[in-house]
Design a protein around this nucleic acid. Sequence first.
DNA 1: GGAGGTGACGTACC
DNA 2: ACCGGTACGTCACCTCC
Length: 832
Amino acid sequence: MEIEFIPLDYSAFDFNDENYVKIYGRSREGRRICLIDKIDAYFWAILQDGLSEKQIKHVMEKIEKIKVHSESRTTHVLKTELHEKKFLGQDVKAVKISITNYKDAPSVAGKIDFEEIVKRREHDLGTITHYIMSGKVIPLKWFKVSGDVLNKSGDFGGIDSAINADFVLKVGSIKESDKKSDELFSPKILAYDIEVDELEIGKGRILMISLYGGDFRKVLTWKKEGNDIDFVEHCKSEADMLEKFCDYIKTEDPDILTGYFSDNFDMSYIRERAKKLEVKLPIGLDSSQPRISGAKRQSAKIEGIVHLDIYKFVDVNYSQYLQSETLSLNEVAGELLSEKKLNFEFKHFSKLSKDEWNKFFHYNLQDSALTYKLAEKIWPDLMEFSRIMHKPLFDVSRDGMSTHVEDYILHNLYRFNEIAEKRPIHDEIGERRDREKYEGAFVLQPKPGLYENVVVFDFTSFWPSIIATFNLSRSTILEKKLKSCIIVDTGNKEFYFTPTKGFFPELLEEIIVKRKEYKEVFKKNPDPIVKARSNAFKLIANAAYGYQGFFGARYYCPQASASATAISRKFIKETLEKIKKSGREVIYIDTDSLIFVNQNKKTNKRYTAQETFHFLKELNSELPGIMELDLEDFYMRGLWVTTRSGEVGAKKKYALINENGKLKIRGFETVRRDWCKLARNLQNGVLRKILNEGNEINALQYTKEIIKKLKDRKIDSKDIIIKTQLKKPISGYKSKGPHVLAAEKMLKEGIPVDVGMLIEYYISEPKKDAKGKPNSRSKRIGNRVALIDDNKPYDISYYLNNQVLPAVENIFQVFGIETKDIIEGESQKRLF
DNA sequence: GGAGGTGACGTACC
DNA sequence: ACCGGTACGTCACCTCC
């Protein structure tokens, strides 16, 4: 039988103590297919230099005799082959050791402690990664597969009769489809969401489960309410509801089952309840139950169906581009879909009225609907990530950036004939984490002020372009200086790199080139797949620099990172001098961007756009390799302020307005979620007015109005709420700030508190003693925290002196105005 | 008991 | 445990006078 096939999910299994992979996917016709393929289990032993043929033969014979016994099986070496390979760019002779079971590769490797073997490698890969590295079946690409259909033949112990697929096929040959292998595939998605009466897993019951698959809409419940809602289906009991949930997954037959935070919450909750109620959850295509692994960061895997937790993917790949202050379903859907959750006020379910129950069902369904739509929205990115990084959807949706970078490298090593480096072992990780920090990028101290006619230049893909241009990597670093090598002076130490391109810099250069290419293609043809592809390359490129300094990296090389930052400082400073030399005044620099006044300081001549582009071209002609400077935008005005303590200009804090009146605010309290809305909105208004109008007059008036409102207690209660994240368990805090005390207060009132939660509170007036003086406990701000429902008056003095004034003071200082004097003057005037 | 320094902490920038 | 360093600012907590 021959079919066209797209792989979606992988899982490994053993038969007769050997390794096989089940690859679940669809045919062109939409049939559910499961392929079975043999995994070639092997790893490498790198030989000592200069061994004789006889010595090599002797070692290989020794290796062939190795056997490893465990309780359930014996693994032995099938064969050994001698290969000419590369390791970290060096030519090596290596023995390919094929074994019966890859799971025992580490144990077999452990027995090869002969002195002729200098290194053992590729025994520490995940089984599926090891399989995919063979390059045979790339996730989410189309393949032409031929092979034998297992038709209750008893092959593999009759595995096919246990798999819920249209065909189970034993792979004969497989190759990439000659038709467009990268075209869009639309998976069948089913979203789910649960509502419970107690948030803590294991404590409460599941009240309802919603399912949403486009046309398919369902809320399952064992409660009696909701009779007049068509999508509500009543179950006899909670156990019955869980069984129906499984039944619907079976009949809907989705490729992707998706939830929001479902790894840590929904699926874990369902599993706990199922355990307690003694219900089986046979939703896997082999009728297995969901498997939940990991402790703090759990993941729930379903055999054959991709369980997708959208929260994780959003966290890793979107959060830095989102405005949302939290990654709650409500905020993320609001920003990505312009659609929100339904309003629903949670109460104990025993207190819900008929009407409120009906709302609850709609609320529950809407959550699944939003999750479904988010899944559709992120699908192009998921698919392209999967294709580009050669990773199954399950992993691509859960892994962090460093793992993405590493997997991209691993899956491209074959092109360089490279054997993969090992993962660091425990002691190494400890050492790496204890290493001294290396010096980072350059940040220029700005001179506070309001500037006009401002331009921003920035380096495109700064870090990767430096790494690629100067060949900075683990496999290219030299122990000593050679006659012709790249010398990097970090100011502290010198590092040397070979000029022969290494695989890491080369891959990076390729990534940058591809990114540029697809960005151009997208400009001409705005196809979401092309955009997703360009985006995937951008993300890998940006993370590659951090990867080399990351303690867990296989290709860890802090010297390369330190060299990259040293080179970055050199070029940004050189560019600074060139801009200055052109007569322009540079206001600010951070890492890869330079902000300057686009006019000659002496002659006051304003440069035209054309002259600016010409200048840019000139600067670019002097840059090496693939380093490139780009024009980010022209701005009408820009504002820089001093730090709160001292006279110097504050770094990482500025506001710009471009020629279309669009603001770009960085670092100011306006963009910080741990400041109250009152201060943030005021500061935003002040900045907007100043940048628009070029002076502070209206901004000052506005500030006075807000302060009057504050003093008159006319501020909306939601604008005084301060939100701070609880980053660790309460007991882990040495110094308990207001948010920690607020969290303690919540616990006392029976409100559940979790690590990672945004704690919301406000500051109330101090308690006074008999004489009317604030008591000494009140000095600590934490002792005055109030929760939203506390209904205590807010502390005017705190909000004035600790929120409002700090947010605007140094802005007005730029214009020589001491806000405090003015405010006090005003209040004195009023007093008299 | 107020001033001032320092460490812990959270968040932002690139 | 799940990419790096740089930087600002608040609050708690301590020492000092």
